[in-house]
Amino acid sequence: MTEENRTLTPEEAMDEEIVSYLDGELDREAAIAIERRLAEDPAYRARLAHLQQAWDLLDNLGRTEADENFTHSTVAMVTVKAGEDSAIGQTAAQRRRQLAYAGLGGLALAAGAIAYVVVDRSLNSENRALVRDLPVIKRIDEYSNIEGVDFLKQLQKEGLFAAEVSDGG
């Protein structure tokens, strides 16, 4: 559970209220209510004083001052790095262009290969069908005399096709 949505104990709620007051974050009405309680409640007053004292001790931390050369070295470092970024950016752009050209070349090759396969298949599909149907074509005159499939099935039952089947026909 985060600090934000955890249920506060009454003491924690009081601390939040005091700290908000010390930070000037309360509206006028809430601040007046705190001040009224401060006037009446010594324990509340002591709590506020302790929190304020701990806060005031932070003044001991002091502020950091940059050295004389810090500004110069920072601006110089940023300029150099920005120059490097620019050079890296140009190299990267060049590499991206090369990759794009290579990719386009690859795509063109792949498209050519696919087109070849498709055309080859479509051209050969008729011949393949003819080869597949060749045994039928050879006997098309005989088959045209046959009345229908039922007649053929009857002939097969009688074993008339056994010789052709064993020949692979």
């Binding site: 600090e3 939040e16 908000s20 930070d23 929190l51 004292q53 806060w55």
Partner: peptide
């Protein structure tokens, strides 16, 4: 969340530095 963080921070400081 900031209100809670600052309150907890001040209380912790107070406890350490009491």
């Amino acid at each position: 969340a900031i209100k809670s963080l600052l309150s907890r921070a001040r209380v912790n400081l107070k406890e350490i530095l009491t």
